[in-house]
Design a protein around this nucleic acid. Structure first.
Length: 556
RNA sequence: GCGGGUGUGGUUCAAUGGUAGAACGCGGGCUUCCCAAGCCUGAGACGAGGGUUCGAUUCCCUUCACCCGCUCCA
């Protein structure tokens, strides 16, 4: 298997992606654009396969999930209801001394919780200052804890300013107090906000807006501001009623969607892992609230280690459904070639959960640059539908015939990133091994070991020689024969070994070669071809008549 | 957004104040060619913009992108 230094591995993968046409930088001829990536010929096939397999698993193989394909730009109220307008814009400041980036709205909280903040507050209470202790602290702890603080750098002047401020205003607030001790009176005309980590001066807050903004209609003014969706999920909630009316589904059922989303990330990093334009595959699975389940089934099933969550049961509440979806999703990842040991399940702790979430599991893949999230599976209660009910004034309630009850459904949300998954598949597939060349000497080989289900090209078809018309013609016949069933790549250029290697880097699992035996040079082998396996390098002699079946068995 | 590093054919690298070389890869040709063989042959680069200079890929400034760290990841 791969013996690759972690440090170089990502660089090798990035360069292979470009060399073989998986992923290019967007707008590269103009110098590229930060956070945007394009998929080339092989990458687009790979990504298409991923989407296709997810969609099939969600809709075609289940009766209880239907699809949606909604617009990227939606009514701006949607993002007010979802909370994105308020939570996606953060004021940020940078410390001019220690260069840390800090959310401005958290500065005072961090100072109040800090050791130096608590200590200094202690010296100033009820409008009285303990000057002696203060100066003692400056000379001992202060230099170490907050070297950038004006009080530490210039204690005499700052204490003077502090005393005159106290004299003028007995009810100095903690913030005013901290601002004064952070400001060097001779160097500044106004008070500064101190950095919680070093006491240095913070820059003016700047807004970091994570949503892309645009305008609907030709005139760009505040009236017609709209946003590119930062997630696909909200469209599902917004269309919940329509789908309920038209799909003849009953709760529990799900709505799924694949589509682009946009986030103005502060720092896009790690190749395509965190991009500003990306694609999501999301399912919202609507279930009965636990009270309704209890009323109908008499109890709500409790989850315990080893419980069977494979087949939905009438007594399942949100917890069992959540477990069910975790299991379903894990199985799906395994089905496309990510073995269980390549990822981890991370159960978010109570204090990490968003206020409306009851549980959230991250499925994390072990990338070369760290273990990172591919998918989050959250139990979100009825938060989203209730919010849209509130903001739109339209009822989101469902009338449950069986329970004779009206309620806002609860939801379990498996939400996956397509681009992250494609990157994970690429990282997972990349390997280097050694194969013997024609003289038997071992040579290094780069091979993408994609699962045949996701491989961009399923089979390469090669005439052994391109200057023998009979070989070429037969090879083209075989190509035409296979085309309706799978993606085929025909190649006649270069030595046969070279063509095999080219397909190894593309991750093509099978190579079919038409040789002189195919044409009948050895009578018993007439109308047979060799099928070369990417991973084992073994060759099978297969009758052309049986080739479709042979390959379909192995790529399905 | 801050700090550090890096930008030369598709990829990986080299050299140089007088406009660039290689290896591999790619295209064409020859070869009964099954794991990147050989021979012939062809195409292809100084991230972008400005400045200094007679002349800049090289020096300076700006900018863009990538990598590492900080931060962010609802």
């Amino acid at each position: 298997m791969a013996e690759v230094k972690i440090n170089d591995l990502m660089e090798k993968i990035v360069s292979l992606c470009k060399r073989r046409g998986f992923i290019y930088q967007s707008s590269e001829i103009y110098g590229g654009i930060n956070g945007f990536w394009d998929y080339g010929p092989l990458g687009s096939e790979l990504k298409r396969n991923v989407r296709e397999l997810w969609w099939q698993a969600m809709t075609r193989f289940r009766d209880d999930i239907v699809g949606l394909d909604a617009t990227i730009i939606m009514h701006p109220k949607i993002w007010e209801a979802s909370g994105h307008v308020s939570t996606f814009a953060d004021p940020m400041s940078t410390c001019k001394v220690c260069k840390k980036l800090i959310r401005t709205d958290q500065v005072w909280e961090i100072i109040n919780d800090s050791e130096w903040g608590r200590t200094l507050s202690g010296f100033f209470s009820n409008g009285a200052l303990d000057e002696e202790k203060l100066l003692q602290w400056v000379h001992h702890r202060g230099h170490r804890q907050v070297p950038g603080l004006a009080l530490v750098k210039n204690p005499n002047e700052v204490v003077k300013a502090l005393k005159s401020a106290i004299a003028g205003n007995k009810d100095l607030s903690p913030q005013e107090f901290f601002k004064i001790i952070a400001t060097n009176p001779s160097a500044y005309t106004s008070l500064i906000t101190p950095c919680p980590y070093c006491g240095g001066e913070l820059t003016e807050p700047r807004m970091f807006n994570l949503m892309f903004k645009t305008h609907v209609g030709p005139v760009a003014d505040e009236e017609n501001v709209a946003y590119l969706r930062p997630e696909t999920a909200q469209a599902i909630f917004a269309q919940f009623k329509n789908i309920l009316e038209t799909s003849r589904q009953k709760i529990p059922f799900g709505i799924c969607q694949i589509g682009k989303a946009f986030r103005n990330e502060v720092t896009p990093r790690n190749f395509t892992f965190r991009s500003r334009e990306f694609e999501q595959m999301e399912l919202e699975f609507f279930i009965r609230p636990d009270e309704v389940v209890e009323k109908l089934a008499g109890k709500v099933a409790k989850w315990s280690e080893g419980a069977d969550v494979s087949q939905p049961q009438p007594d399942w509440g949100w917890e069992m459904w959540h477990r069910h979806w975790v299991e379903e999703r894990v199985k799906w990842y395994e089905s496309i070639g990510l073995s269980r040991d390549t990822f981890e399940l991370y159960w978010q702790q109570k204090e990490e959960l968003a206020h409306y979430a009851r549980a959230c599991v991250d499925i994390q893949f072990k990338f070369p640059f760290g273990t990172q999230e591919l998918e989050g599976i959250a139990a979100r209660g009825d938060f989203d539908l209730t919010q849209h009910q509130k903001f739109s004034g339209k009822s989101m309630e469902y009338f449950d015939e069986e329970a004779k009850a009206r309620y806002v459904p609860h939801v379990v949300e498996p939400s996956a990133g397509v681009d992250r998954l494609v990157l994970a598949l690429i990282c997972n597939a990349y390997s280097e091994d050694e194969v013997p060349d024609e003289s038997g000497k071992l040579e290094q080989r780069v091979v993408m070991r994609f699962h045949p289900r996701v491989a961009p090209i399923k089979v390469g078809v090669f005439p052994l020689l391109k200057n023998k018309p009979q070989l070429v013609q037969k090879a083209k016949e075989v190509r035409e024969m296979l085309r309706p069933y799978m993606s085929v790549f025909y190649d006649e250029a270069g030595a046969i070994g070279r063509r095999y290697r080219r397909q190894d880097e593309a991750g093509t699992p099978f190579g079919v070669t038409i040789d002189f035996d195919t044409l009948g040079e050895t009578n018993s082998l007439k109308d047979t071809v060799t099928v070369r396996d990417r991973d084992t390098l073994k060759q099978d002699r297969v009758k052309i008549d049986e080739l479709v079946h042979y390959l379909m068995e192995r790529i399905k």
